[in-house]
């Protein structure tokens, strides 16, 4: 860290610490001498491991965010959360129906939603969480899968939900049902699988594997390129 950086005060589990302005919460914690053993992950906003809550001076609200994406502010009060304990149903995807019946059976608590929208407000991915919960209640699995797609399962919705459901696990069931049952399959894929099973590529694969390095380089150079981007 450069010495001429401007430092700002934050409170980490009670201790007042000066950290560089512009740091993310994760960077600030490390700067302040913490080696994180939990509540940390990809540091790029993709894994949801560092979901956290904090408070700001003069504001009664509990604010949520990803610690690797949230920049520190003066007076911020921080404490890293290790993980969210959440209900996860076990099921056999081959035996579930892509409709509301699966949710009635596996996650009946979804019907306790009071439409308070607390989940949507805290989502660091800006997902319309309440809307997908309502889509599930209506039995619109496709809508729920689409709306929840960017979910990184950080658990903030679950920590705040007054109906006490684990939205992110419920949405995952919706997406898995959609992906397995409600999208068209590619004919080309099944033709390719049949070709492979029939050994259509075996002979050429055998030949190419036996090529000398020079022979392989020649084949590589001679291969045609197709870069139509449309």
């Amino acid at each position: 860290m450069e010495s001429d950086q401007k430092l700002i005060p934050v409170y980490i589990m009670g201790e007042k610490v000066m950290v560089p302005e512009g740091s993310t919460i994760i960077d600030a914690l490390e700067y302040a001498g913490f080696q994180l053993k939990k509540g940390i992950g990809c540091r790029e906003g993709f894994c949801g491991a560092c979901a956290t809550v904090y408070r700001l001076p003069g504001d009664f609200k509990l604010i949520g965010g990803l610690a690797c994406q949230t920049v520190v502010e003066p007076g911020m009060y921080l404490a890293q959360i290790p993980c969210t304990p959440a209900q996860k149903a076990t099921y056999n995807i081959e035996k579930e129906n892509p409709d509301v019946s699966s949710f009635l059976k596996l996650y009946p608590e979804v019907f306790r939603c009071v439409s308070c929208n607390t989940c949507t407000k805290i989502c660091p991915q800006e997902i319309e969480v309440m809307d997908y919960v309502n889509a599930i209640i209506r039995g619109d699995i496709a809508e729920a899968a689409d709306l929840s797609f960017d979910c990184i399962m950080c658990g903030l919705c679950t920590m705040r939900c007054p109906a006490e459901m684990a939205q992110y696990n419920i949405a995952l069931l919706a997406r898995r049902l959609f992906g397995r049952y409600l999208t068209k399959r590619s004919d080309y894929l099944y033709e390719r699988l049949k070709d492979i099973a029939d050994g259509k590529f075996d002979k050429e694969m055998k030949n190419i594997k036996q090529l000398s390095r020079e022979g392989l380089e020649k084949r590589y150079k001679e291969r045609d390129l197709d870069f139509d981007i449309t």
Binding site: I93, A145, F149, R175, R176, G179, R185
Partner: peptide
Amino acid sequence: LEELGVMW
């Protein structure tokens, strides 16, 4: 993966 429910 598609059969597991991955949304390609």
